[in-house]
Design a protein around this nucleic acid. Structure first.
Lengths: 150, 150
DNA sequence: GCTTTCTTGCAAATCATTCGCAACTGGCTT
DNA sequence: AAGCCAGTTGCGAATGATTTGCAAGAAAGC
């Protein structure tokens, strides 16, 4: 797991950190890092492949999956498995400003991020009360745009 | 969707309700209903098949899956897709006494149910605040038994 | 009891993801 | 700058849970 940097990860600090972790920064990995850093949404593997093709024509889907697994293991990306869709990924750096959870618009599949300290607190209490400690959690709201009230 | 009964569903009221909904209560479906009603855990499809074999030797896995899909559509069972495991099922009737969420012991895969009104309330607020209404949600805590403190 | 329609069991198909393997390439070494 | 070599890639095949096509079988109404 790569240590949190003093400054937000840039592509440079990040590749350096990866190299330091004994992970080669190949063209395909660099491309995926860039594509992930630029993503404002939550793309899945085929979508990331498509976006990386600009940098590395012919990058294979297996490489995308393998790289994502590697980056996930390094704590650089987060994998989300929302209901009924393939896995979606986001850079962990977007989490640095605090943990967030997700709302999924069931009509559009759009993903909306939100934070709630109270949820975080509440779940820790619940676990503690039952004699457990939290390893990780999953909190997803499947939602639909509220109808303007009549 | 089958209406909530005046009394808790028995196998009888349930099969009657299903028949009324135009769904034939075959031997395999009856067996699965019974097995689900008796389950205190959260079995997956192959496990349900195994348990139903007592009543219906040779019941096929596809039938189990198909039946579970049918019962889910009727609101009779709930399907849970926890991380890294196959889907697990539970009778919806165990939800009648109020909604519950799940803690999954990452060491044992054991599923522990818990209720929290505050969570329910909180998530409704969060969604409303962002202009959405909740269709359903997913709240799972992946936990580990707390080490007795030294 | 008979018929119609819904169900079943089987095997084959899906679908996202992973894996084996031979060819290739970062990046340290000299 | 050239070489080495373990870590990586691309390909295609394998995986594993779940779904589906189809012909044979069985609920429930008549």
């Amino acid at each position: 797991m790569i240590d949190p940097p003093d400054q937000p990860h840039t592509l440079e600090t990040l590749t350096a950190a990866l190299r330091a972790a004994g992970i080669r920064v190949t063209r395909q990995r660099a491309a995926l890092l860039r594509v992930l850093a630029q993503a404002v949404d939550h793309p899945d593997a085929p979508e990331l492949q498509k976006r990386a093709e600009g940098d590395v024509p012919g990058i294979s889907l297996s490489t995308v999956y393998r790289t994502l697994a590697t980056l996930e293991a390094q704590g650089v990306v987060l994998r989300h498995q929302f209901d009924g869709t393939s896995a979606r990924f986001e850079p962990a750096q977007s989490t640095e400003s605090g943990h967030h959870d997700h709302m999924i618009d069931v009509d559009t599949s759009e993903v909306i991020e939100f934070c709630s300290d109270r949820i975080e607190q509440l779940q820790a209490e619940i676990a503690a009360e039952l004699g457990y400690e939290i390893v990780h959690h999953r909190f997803e709201l499947y939602v639909r745009k509220a109808r303007a009230r009549d």
